[in-house]
Amino acid sequence: MSDLVLAAGCVLWRRAQDGGGLEVCLVHRPRYDDWSFPKGKLKRGETALEAALREVLEETGHHCVPGAPLPTALYVANGRPKEVTYWAAEATDGAFVPNDEVDRLAWLSPESARSRLSRPGDRIQLDAFLHAGRNGT
C-alpha cells in the first residue's frame, strides 16, 4: 500500500501540579481546528519512535521519556490511509511556544482529555494508556 502515510506520536503525560493524579497533553492544530495527541509523519530514515519523540518536542516544546507502546491508529486522512504508532511518554522538561502548526496546548485530566479529543478513535490510545497503569508501563 504505497499511499499509506506513516506517522507516530505519544500520549504525553505528567503528574498534576497539585499532586492530584496525572494530566494528559493535547495540542490544538489551527489548520484542522482539532485537539489531538502530539503526532506527525515520519521523515525518511527515521524510526517510528524517533519520529514520535521529535514530534512531541516540536509540537509541545517538551522532552519526554517513552514508555509502553500503545495501540496503533489506522484511519483515512485526506483520502489516504494513515497509520499512527503511539507510545505513552512522561514529560520531563520544556515549555510550550505557540507556532503555525500548534497554537494551543492543554494539560487536562484524563476525563477532560477524553471529552476534548476531536477524533473519537483517539480515545483508544487514552484508554490503553490508563489501563496500562497510568504510566504506560
Rank of each mutant, 00 (worst) to 15 (best):
V76T: 14
A132V: 01
L74S: 13
H28D: 03
I124D: 06
G9P: 05
R31L: 11
D93N: 10
V27I: 15
A68V: 02
N99M: 03
E101T: 10
R123G: 04
L6I: 03
P38Q: 12
D103I: 04
L74Y: 14
L74H: 15
R123N: 05
E101N: 09
G67C: 04
A48C: 07
A88N: 08
E23V: 00
G21A: 10
G20K: 10
G45N: 08
Y86E: 12
T47H: 07
D100E: 15
A16W: 00
P98V: 10
W35G: 10
S118E: 03
P98R: 12
S109A: 14
D33I: 02
T72D: 15
A128H: 03
R80V: 12
L130G: 03
L117A: 02
E50D: 11
I124Q: 07
E83W: 05
R80G: 03
P98T: 12
F129L: 15
P69K: 08
H131R: 14
E90Y: 00
D3G: 11
L53H: 04
P38L: 13
L49K: 02
R80A: 15
R80Y: 13
T60G: 08
G21N: 08
W35P: 13
E46A: 07
G79M: 13
G121E: 10
L70Q: 07
A16R: 13
P30M: 08
E23I: 03
E111G: 11
S2F: 02
V84F: 05
R119M: 06
A88K: 06
L53P: 02
G133S: 04
S2H: 12
D18G: 03
A7E: 12
A128Q: 11
L49V: 03
Q125Y: 00
T92E: 10
A51E: 05
N99V: 02
P71H: 04
T137F: 00
K82N: 09
A91S: 15
A48L: 06
G121A: 13
